[in-house]
Computed example of a mutant assay.
Amino acid sequence: MTQEPRYRRIAEELRHAITEHAYGPGGKLPSEGALAGQYEVSRGTIRQALMLLRQDGLVTSRRGTRRVVLDDAPVQDFAQMQSFARWARSIGETPEGRVVGQGWHPADPNEQRHLRIDADARVLHVMRLRLLSGRPAMLERTVYPELAGTIVENLASDTVSVTEFLESAGIFVADAEHTIDLVLAAPEDAELLGCAPGDPLLRERRRSTDPAGVPLEWSEDRYVPGSVAFVVHNSLASTPMTRQHMVPGNSGS
């Protein structure tokens, strides 16, 4: 019988201690060196164990510091998914936003398909870092067609809610389609979100449309572990979500 790797046993012991509130939300785990001494293993073994805890969303992933135990992930139901700012306020957090990149580009075939626009159309790309009470929580990459883009491009870089601003301009979202999966953090994600490259991130891709069914945005949001959870309600009268098979190597973009 193959013996379970040491780092997995260490991760399980730490996971049990965390779930039993031995450290408490916001508490710090011992340093890598202290844990290595406690378990009489190398720091590399401890890092492997901590990686498993990061993947479970139990601890932070900042390198060079002691890992911090995360609170239970705030739950975001589907009725609040359209507006990050409204959801943040509903759970007692202060929403913040900062544009880190913006520009007009010719629409690529994928954007043409999702936004139902012509091949020669241009779109506005906006990358925005979202924070919960000062903590990086999500990196949002949104593509806007001409109508919404000409409004969004003039917003202040620290505008808290794009949705609320569009509503003030008479543009309302009536429907949205969401696809949720897991991706690994790219170097750009890691730098802005304060995680390590390769860390797992919850990804939500969303197409929003107005009351006439015209697409207003195509967005990809990447959340740091422990920052959000999604709840789906199903009933005999309503089935708002479908399960799809993901072919290996196919991102489903």
Rank of each mutant, 00 (worst) to 15 (best):
E40S: 12
A88N: 01
S251D: 14
P109M: 08
H245C: 04
L132N: 04
R98M: 08
D181G: 15
A121R: 12
A185M: 12
Q3F: 12
V126M: 07
R62N: 05
R135L: 06
L58G: 01
R122N: 15
E20K: 11
I10A: 01
H16Q: 12
V59K: 01
S208G: 14
Q80P: 01
T159N: 05
A36W: 06
A169L: 06
R6I: 08
E20R: 14
A156S: 15
F172M: 00
P240M: 09
L147A: 14
A119Q: 14
L70F: 02
H245Y: 13
G37W: 07
D189Q: 10
E188F: 12
P145F: 06
V143H: 03
E96P: 02
E167D: 10
E146T: 08
V143Y: 04
N154E: 13
R8L: 15
D56C: 02
D108H: 10
E220N: 14
V214S: 07
L216P: 00
F84T: 00
A119W: 14
F165H: 07
P106W: 07
V232K: 06
P74R: 07
D71F: 05
E153Q: 15
K28L: 11
L147H: 13
L216W: 04
R135F: 08
R207L: 13
L147D: 13
G92K: 06
A169T: 04
Q80R: 14
T163V: 12
S238Q: 09
E204C: 10
R203V: 06
I10M: 04
P248W: 11
P106Q: 09
E220G: 05
E153L: 08
L58C: 03
I10W: 01
G226R: 00
G213V: 05
E217D: 15
F172Y: 11
A119E: 15
D181K: 09
D158R: 11
H125G: 02
A17E: 13
E177K: 10
W87A: 00
E140K: 03
R141D: 14
H178P: 02
V183Q: 13
R63P: 00
D158C: 06
S235K: 06
Y23W: 14
G37L: 12
S157K: 10
V160H: 06
R207E: 12
M246F: 08
D181T: 12
I171K: 04
A36E: 07
S251V: 08
E188P: 02
T163F: 07
S90F: 11
G24H: 11
G101N: 09
T239H: 14
M51H: 13
